[in-house]
Simulated assay, not measured.
Amino acid sequence: MKRYLVIYNPSSGKELAGYKIFNAAETVMSIENIEFSFYATKKKGDGEEAAIRGCRSGYDMIIACGGDGTVHEVVNGMMKCPQRPKLAIMPAGTINDFAEQLKLPKSQDNFASLILKNNFRTIDVGKVNDDYFVNVVGGGAFTTIPHRVTIDAKTILGKYAYYYQAAVQVPEELELSQLIDYTIDGVEYSYNTLLFLVINSSGAGGFRYLCPNAKLDDGLLDIVIFEKTTNADLFQIFTKVFNGQHITHPKVHYFQGEKIKIIPEKELLIDTDGDPGGYAPANISSVHKAIDILVP
């Protein structure tokens, strides 16, 4: 009998995550001989610890049910274990950036069908200093917005809580910039940076084509750097982000690399999959084909 461990955040998705994953598991068990165990996270770090225990206990698959933060913790736990089970993600958070990139179903019935199809893809995972990430590491303007949105606001407003917070912060965020030195696979660059993003998939923050050439299994991370420039330039860049054409703008710099080092001129908080990830300097690398993940 296969054994699956579900790690879920009960406060995710307007507090419906538990209900959705219980029903999906019930559907699967009515068709397949699979044993499900459930663990509800209560505080930061619980998901990582539960994933480590799941790896050591020999589960066949770990299912992360929640938002990007839950997925981030589960992957960090799995990456700290030499023997890793397969991973599934049931998106139940407010934004679900990584799940959106993989086109994972949100409904309980469709997720149950996904489990029964049993189709997997081996993907890369990023590493920043001693932490791991599945989707994005960023620094500079707008990267602290997810940290300022309260759980209550997300429960009431959903993804619009982030849009509201972004609108409130626009004036101060556009004034943020500093000189940052980048070393990408041994080649050095320096830019007066408004925002940088290192992405494993092609998108983040609801923007699907931030890194239009990205692949999840090529052993490379994609880096997009937005230089400090005029508001008119920024507006032009913003209008092109939706189709990936922003990378042709002279104030946007786009690279791919396996190893990236980031050294800022001043103190810089790093965002990792939507959560605070410590301060730069940052050593970032790709862990090639690290995890088998359930996909449509």
Rank of each mutant, 00 (worst) to 15 (best):
A153E: 14
A153H: 08
K154M: 06
T155P: 00
I156M: 13
L157E: 14
L157W: 12
L157G: 02
L157P: 00
G158R: 04
G158W: 03
G158L: 06
Y160E: 13
Y160C: 02
A161D: 06
Y162F: 13
Y162R: 00
Y163C: 10
Y164L: 15
Y164E: 09
Q165P: 04
A166M: 12
A166Y: 09
A167K: 08
Q169T: 12
Q169L: 14
Q169M: 14
P171V: 07
P171K: 02
E172G: 10
E173I: 06
L174R: 05
L174Q: 04
L176K: 15
L176Q: 14
L176T: 12
Q178H: 02
Q178R: 02
I180D: 07
I180E: 00
D181P: 00
Y182G: 01
Y182P: 00
T183F: 04
I184A: 01
D185W: 01
G186V: 03
G186S: 07
V187R: 12
V187I: 14
E188D: 15
E188Y: 12
E188W: 07
E188G: 10
Y189C: 06
N192D: 15
N192A: 10
T193S: 03
T193L: 02
T193D: 04
L194A: 05
L194W: 00
L194D: 02
L194S: 07
L195C: 01
L195Q: 02
L195E: 01
L195A: 02
F196A: 01
L197V: 07
L197M: 12
L197I: 04
I199M: 08
I199E: 04
I199C: 09
I199L: 10
N200I: 01
G203R: 00
G206K: 03
G206V: 00
F207R: 09
F207K: 11
F207L: 10
F207Y: 14
F207C: 08
R208C: 04
R208Y: 10
R208I: 10
Y209I: 08
L210H: 03
P212C: 05
P212E: 02
P212R: 06
N213C: 12
N213S: 15
N213M: 13
A214R: 00
A214S: 09
A214K: 03
K215H: 15
D217W: 07
D217K: 05
D217S: 09
D217G: 06
D217F: 09
D217R: 07
D218Y: 13
D218F: 13
D218H: 11
G219C: 09
G219H: 06
G219K: 07
L220H: 11
L220F: 15
L221F: 01
D222R: 05
D222K: 04
D222W: 09
I223A: 05
I223E: 06
I223R: 02
V224D: 01
V224Q: 01
I225M: 02
I225L: 07
F226M: 04
E227Q: 15
E227I: 07
T230M: 08
T230G: 08
T230W: 03
T230H: 08
N231Q: 14
N231H: 14
L234W: 08
L234I: 13
F235K: 13
F235N: 11
Q236E: 12
Q236W: 08
I237H: 06
I237P: 03
I237N: 02
F238G: 10
T239E: 12
T239W: 10
K240G: 04
V241M: 15
V241E: 11
F242L: 13
N243C: 06
G244R: 07
G244T: 08
G244L: 05
Q245V: 00
H246Y: 09
H246L: 04
H246F: 06
